[in-house]
């Protein structure tokens, strides 16, 4: 019996963590899909990243399938905006994505801020696509979220069991159109409606 104590202790800890992670709360009823009365952006589109999550590649691939005129430039700078009429920012912190670009998180924050400021100056609509699942729910993603959302013209996120993430509770107060997707495959429709 004594030999089994470590095993039982680990099992109990694992069960507690698993139980804590399981969220049984009801979905927030305010989620909408789709809710844009008219297109808000024009082509040509710059698809870039805030946090270097690889979801940008998925959004670019979907935009290609929609025949949208878009470029995928995850490392785009504010000086690159002259050629575009809309910006799609893919939100999500990825440690390995960032390491791949040889940028530190602080550099990423300041570069993103500069890009956002320039986009507002040039009156380019900013569409934020936030596909951060639970795996991306880190303090860095939250910082990026807080940085980007005040500049957002349209927010597309993923609906999950919890409805909004706790740090996304203020989204409705920003008075921006929000679309929460049931699954990744549903992204094509709001993306298309933003431009056509």
């Amino acid at each position: 019996m004594k030999k089994s104590i470590p095993f039982l202790l680990c099992l109990v800890i694992a069960l507690i963590i698993a139980f804590t992670n399981m969220d049984t709360s009801q979905s927030n009823p305010m989620t909408t899909y789709p809710n844009l009365p008219a297109p808000i952006g024009k082509e040509k589109i710059l698809i870039t990243s805030a946090g270097q999550a690889m979801e940008g590649a998925i959004v670019y691939s979907i935009s290609e399938s929609l025949h949208l005129d878009a470029d995928y430039r995850p490392r785009a700078l504010d000086s690159d905006l002259y050629d575009y009429q809309s910006v799609i920012i893919i939100l999500g912190y990825s440690a390995n994505g960032l390491a791949y670009t040889n940028r530190s998180f602080q550099e990423e924050l300041s570069l993103t801020k500069a890009l956002l400021t320039e986009a507002i100056l040039q009156e380019l609509p900013i569409i934020v696509v936030d596909l951060s699942s639970r795996g991306r729910d880190s303090k860095h993603t939250r910082e990026l979220f807080e940085l980007v959302t005040p500049y957002t013209a349209y927010y597309i996120g993923l609906k999950n069991e919890q409805g909004y993430h706790p740090y996304k509770q203020d989204l409705p107060k920003l008075d921006i159109p929000v679309t929460l997707l049931n699954e990744l495959d549903d992204l094509a429709t709001p993306l298309n409606s933003a431009f056509r």
Binding site: D23, A53, M54, S94, N96, L131, S133, R134, G135
Partner: peptide, 17 residues
């Protein structure tokens, strides 16, 4: 994933893809 398994960066990337 909903239980909190596979939250590592690469695991998330692979599952998302």
């Amino acid at each position: 994933s909903q239980l909190g398994i596979g939250t590592g960066d690469f695991a998330v990337m692979i599952k998302m893809a």
